[in-house]
């Protein structure tokens, strides 16, 4: 790993990382993997999604474990980040149905549905 020594080397690393992100045309599935999420079954959700990615049921996406977004009442939750930078937060998921639900949203980058809690959670003003 490259040591950061000043602003210049920091920006080089940062820009490189942003560039990799930009070129990545996969969608991301962020799984709320905090204590609450795990207790509510995030582990099973992760396994179910992992299996369907391996089996090819869900294509072109990456699974990432993240912290909690605060929607405890709807745990387990996942956020789908589409390649165009938009996103949708889904809640009240079940391991048996989650691959189908996720595949449905990903097929046309859907933003509406009964699992949707919030759209584009990233708000620009605080995305410093």
């Amino acid at each position: 790993m490259k040591k950061i020594t000043d602003m210049k080397s920091y920006l080089e690393v940062k820009n490189e990382l942003s560039e990799i992100k930009k070129q990545n045309t996969n969608s991301k599935i962020l799984i709320g993997y905090g204590t609450c999420g795990i207790a509510a079954g995030a582990g099973e959700i992760y396994e179910a999604l992992e299996e369907s990615i391996i089996s090819g049921e869900i294509l072109n996406c990456e699974l990432v474990k993240v912290g909690c977004v605060g929607y405890c009442h709807a745990e387990p939750t996942i956020e789908l980040q589409y390649p165009d930078g938009t996103s949708v937060l889904l809640g009240n998921l079940h391991p048996h149905t989650v691959p189908e639900v996720v595949a449905g949203y990903l097929s046309n980058f859907k933003k509406k549905g009964k699992h949707v809690l919030e759209k584009n959670v990233t708000c620009d003003v605080t995305k410093v």
Binding site: T35, C36, I38, A39, A40, C72, H73, E75
Partner: peptide
């Protein structure tokens, strides 16, 4: 409090949390 208030009431058996 174990901070899993979203799942209250909570019981923990060893390290496993039931919500």
């Amino acid at each position: 409090c174990i901070g899993a208030c979203g799942l209250a009431p909570v019981v923990m058996i060893n390290d496993k949390i039931y919500g």
